[in-house]
Design a protein around this nucleic acid. Structure first.
Lengths: 158, 158
DNA sequence: CTCGACTAGTCTCATTTGTAACTATATAGT
DNA sequence: ACTATATAGTTACAAATGAGACTAGTCGAG
């Protein structure tokens, strides 16, 4: 129907020169690595880990607070909490101040799990960053946050 | 059952200090932004765009070649090609050298689409990067590739 | 009060995605 | 030439995901 073109098209864009491509590819590679480790070693999904981590680091809070802190949507958080409660890592109590909400907190089991997982997580982070200088590490984290903020500010319906 | 802890746990890890978290959050923010634009303006998924981009930039090749160049798996590529063929943007011909494979190439329509989308894609990239210096841009791309390579080298069954 | 708009959390369902199996062909070793 | 094994591409099915409806409760305006 149409002959394969052989002249370079203009303008030209290669995936390899394209930031969104590298960003998602790198994120997937890291996510698969770490997610696989959480699953294999602790039976947790990445979202369950994020909830556990947030509760462990920041203390008890409602699901809504976790949504605000963890960049997950409320359905994802709700499902993660279900899993963690089923496994006895998280418990909840009716909020004193809002009958719709629950205060979530780690159980003794959950605290133990948190304390076991944190070193593993940090170890993966160290391995991922081991070829980078301290400066480069700081810069990477900062640049990611800058890009993320910019992407959000460009999103429609902000 | 167990009282909410109030003493900080040790060791402590906050999501906000954790590279994998920032990486996936940034990648999702960018991916939603750009993916939404491709869908709204051109009716393409991100994977269809990657295939289109690869064929546009590198010329005709087989699905397998695209897999190798684009970091997608073969099922994803196969589905993306189906969509692009249905829309008349890509055509295929039996490979002369391997009866299992097809040589894929953009149709005239596909070339037009590529040339329309590239400026839009580059424009988004420019907007995302507009607060960064040239140095920072180079560094970001480089660091992402370094991290990605490291994540792959750490993956099991490599 | 009480009406209307809003929020916390869950549920449902359609879509997307990933894994494994499958068909047809290719290739290497004997 | 013949069997083993590997590969190109597709298909089928299960699991993950996201958008919106839904329930129960809150809150401010009048």
């Amino acid at each position: 129907m149409s002959a394969p073109q052989r002249k370079p098209l203009t303008p030209l864009l290669r995936l390899g020169d394209y930031l969104p491509y590298h960003l998602t590819v790198a994120a997937n590679a890291v996510s698969n690595l770490i997610g696989g480790a959480y699953r294999a070693r602790f039976g947790l999904t990445v979202w369950q880990w994020r909830v556990l981590c947030t509760l462990g680091a920041e203390g008890p809070m409602t699901a809504q607070d976790i949504v605000a802190l963890s960049a997950m949507d409320k359905v994802t958080v709700s499902r993660a909490i279900q899993g963690l409660r089923r496994r006895g890592l998280v418990d909840r109590a009716k909020s004193k101040t809002d009958a719709r909400a629950f205060d979530l907190h780690l159980t003794a089991h959950g605290r133990t799990a948190y304390q076991e997982i944190v070193p593993v997580a940090l170890n993966y982070q160290d391995q991922l960053l081991e070829d980078l200088s301290a400066d480069e590490r700081r810069m990477l984290m900062g640049l990611l946050q800058t890009i993320c903020a910019k992407a959000r500010s460009l999103a429609p319906k902000e």
